[in-house]
């Protein structure tokens, strides 16, 4: 989407505020403090100091503080004992007729292989019977990264100088935020200055890590693994590359745009693949894709593409957390 030069885009990118000077009906008078107010303020402060903060002279306050500590301890002990008594009434772990071994889990174990086509029942459960929960989890990962981005991102260029007429709420020497250029200069003391041994070995090991991560993702329905653990491995490979080669080389192939596009494509594909049943009347949660022979890689319907989507989101999340905490940007 190209950026055009109309009022919406100027407001969107923060260059012009269309509401300045247009909101108030008339100018506000300057604030003058009346004489009686100062005396009232001092009286209020003295009253507060006497009744709430003065522990030495006020005997009622001392007693209250002591009783508060004792009451807190008694309350905690009571609560803990109630919870422990409740726990002792639970049935034995692994008993046959526990409420958890009901028909739902029996159905999953018996006809799991038949209905989902996955040899690994756990993957069949989280990506076929309960696919919406996994969708929510992937979204939670994405939201977490966006939250960290809002809090920890640093400005690219210098901080904007104060425009006339706009109040500045902090003095210049108290401002502790950094720009990205300053953060990069700060980061030089952390890097061990292009260690040649580490670079050679990382150049050999990072492809191995990626291939192994892809193997774990693709074999989610045959052996323990799947999207989450495979994505973590790929993220670890990216972190190793970043540590060995520095930020400039990593930005050649992984920028913020890459991150946005990968997450967008993965989550949208997941959403469309599993929510078509809303449009077809929600009668059966089946897909039209045939299940194939169990034990082959290309089998079990939609589980393989969904594993890949989840893996991509997890890998991007891991790398994004590390880069944001270290440098304040991608």
């Amino acid at each position: 989407m190209k950026r055009k030069n109309n009022a919406f885009f100027r407001w969107f990118f923060g260059e012009e505020d269309t509401l300045i000077g247009k909101v108030e009906m008339k100018a506000q008078p300057e604030y003058e403090q009346k004489e009686g107010e100062i005396r009232e303020l001092m009286e209020e402060r003295a009253q507060l100091r006497e009744q709430i903060y003065d522990v030495r002279d006020n005997t009622k306050l001392k007693l209250f503080h002591k009783m508060y500590n004792i009451a807190a301890v008694i309350f905690c002990i009571t609560l803990i004992s109630i919870l422990l008594v409740n726990v002792s009434w639970l049935p034995h772990y692994g008993d046959g007729d526990n409420p958890v071994n009901n028909e739902v889990s029996a159905r999953y174990i018996e006809s799991g292989l038949q209905e989902t086509g996955a040899v690994n029942i756990v993957t069949g459960m989280i990506l076929d019977y309960r696919a919406f929960d996994t969708f929510g989890e992937s979204n939670v990962l994405f939201i977490a990264t966006v939250t960290v981005l809002i809090l920890m991102r640093l400005d690219k260029e210098k901080k904007a100088p104060a425009k006339p007429g706009v109040e500045v709420y902090s003095k210049a020497e108290d401002d502790m935020t950094m720009t990205i250029a300053e953060a990069q200069a700060n980061d030089r003391i952390y890097e061990p200055k292009n260690d040649a041994i580490l670079q050679k070995v990382a150049g050999f090991l990072v492809p191995i890590i990626f291939i192994f991560g892809i193997y774990v993702v693709l074999n989610g329905h045959l052996s323990p693994g799947g999207g989450f653990s495979g994505g973590a491995i790929i993220g670890a490979g990216l972190i190793l590359y970043l540590n060995a080669f520095g930020f400039e080389k990593t930005e050649r192939f992984f920028t913020e745009k890459t991150y946005k596009w990968i997450c967008f494509v993965a989550l949208t594909f997941y959403c469309l693949a599993k929510s078509y049943s809303f449009f077809t009347g929600a009668n059966h949660l089946e897909s039209g894709i045939p299940l194939g022979t169990p034990g082959a890689i290309v089998s079990s319907g939609l589980i393989l593409p969904l594993n890949i989507c989840v893996g991509m989101v997890v890998a991007c999340t891991m790398y994004a957390f590390y880069a944001l905490f270290r440098k304040g940007g991608f």
Partner: peptide
């Protein structure tokens, strides 16, 4: 399949040593 976990553990511990030394030098 438990041998897969072995490889993953090797990778993660290697990565941990790299990041820890970098942080402490910094």
């Amino acid at each position: 399949y438990l041998a897969d976990i072995c490889i993953i553990y090797a990778m993660i511990s290697f990565l941990a040593v790299i990041v820890l030394t970098k942080v402490y030098m910094g």
